[in-house]
């Protein structure tokens, strides 16, 4: 019988080498990987634990933005005050992943690379224009978050590649973000729909930049430029919110499954985009 191997390399190069082999899986927080292992959905030869590599756990401020280590647990992200002030939407999205227990382990990179279209942090990261630092046999490259997931359970990462850290751009004044999701209960569910909105206002309170991203309404999380465009130039009046709702719904091409029907998901995408936009707008206004 095949035996599983566990490696916890200390260096990026060693991790890359180990992950290049077929049957190797990267372990960050493990909250998805261990479930798949247990259910027999995956039968790895080697598990490569990334958490002993320097920098994979932790948050630092760099060049006016933030750098979040790939395996930093959600709880640590939620406790980071400066990050929470600058990116409240991203932090609340991360904090929505699973239970308190899951927050003790689950990571941004894991949430991203598990490649579920319903991952809560992903729409928030996309709306934030976050960039992944990917390392691999060919060296180091920077990739926008939305380019990682290609289909449910699939990523654009080549064998041996993994996400080392996630970079958030510098935050101008009068900008903020928000993330909302719909679940049938109040906790512990996978998002039926998720919506992240990231806004920058001018001194008069007019939206000058807007990104809207949606989760669980397509095979991957979506950046919806039309939805963002609907807000630019407005103060979130009724008409711009209606246009946002319409654009968000137009971008959806969801499936019907045990978590929700396609029709319902589409309607809710519009609702949540509007509500998240409203919250982001209030927050951005407060960061004058």
């Amino acid at each position: 019988m095949a035996q599983l191997d566990y490696l916890a390399p200390l260096k990026v190069e060693d991790a890359v080498k180990a992950l290049a082999a077929t049957g190797s899986y990267a372990l960050a927080g493990g909250t998805d990987l261990l479930v798949q292992l247990r259910s027999g959905r995956i039968r790895p030869d080697t598990i490569v634990d990334l958490k002993r590599i320097a920098g994979t756990i932790g948050i630092r401020e760099e060049a006016g933005g933030f750098v979040i280590g790939a395996a930093t647990p959600g709880a640590m992200i939620g406790e980071h005050e400066a990050l929470s002030r600058a990116w409240p939407g991203l932090v609340e999205a991360v904090s929505l992943i699973g239970s308190t227990q899951v927050q003790g382990r689950a990571s941004l990179a894991g949430n991203l690379c598990n490649a579920s279209p319903a991952a809560d942090s992903v729409p928030a990261m996309i709306a934030a224009r976050a960039v992944c630092v990917v390392v691999g046999p060919a060296g180091r490259r920077e990739v926008p978050v939305e380019a990682i997931g290609t289909a449910p359970g699939r990523t654009s990462l080549a064998p041996g590649e993994f996400v080392l850290e996630i970079r958030l751009p510098p935050r101008p004044a009068r900008s903020s973000d928000a993330y909302l999701r719909l679940i049938p209960r109040t906790e512990m569910d996978i998002a039926v729909v998720g919506a992240g909105v990231n806004l920058t206002l001018d001194a008069a309170g007019v939206v000058i930049e807007a990104q809207v991203a949606l989760g669980a309404v397509a095979p991957t999380a979506l950046l919806v430029p039309d939805a963002g465009a609907a807000l630019v130039g407005s103060k979130l009046d009724e008409a711009s919110l209606a246009a946002l709702d319409t654009a968000a719904r137009a971008a959806c091409h969801p499936i019907s499954d045990k978590r929700g029907t396609a029709e319902y998901r589409t309607k809710i995408a519009g609702v949540l985009a509007r509500r998240a936009a409203f919250i982001a707008y209030e927050r951005a206004g407060a960061r004058a």
């Binding site: 049938p184 209960r185 109040t186 906790e187 512990m188 569910d189 996978i190 499954d257 045990k258 978590r259």
Partner: peptide, 16 residues
């Protein structure tokens, strides 16, 4: 059965 787990069977949690 498509939801043979607590995740998608959805019993009430404390915050519900």
């Amino acid at each position: 059965m498509e939801n043979a787990g607590f995740l998608d069977y959805r019993v009430p949690v404390a915050s519900d």
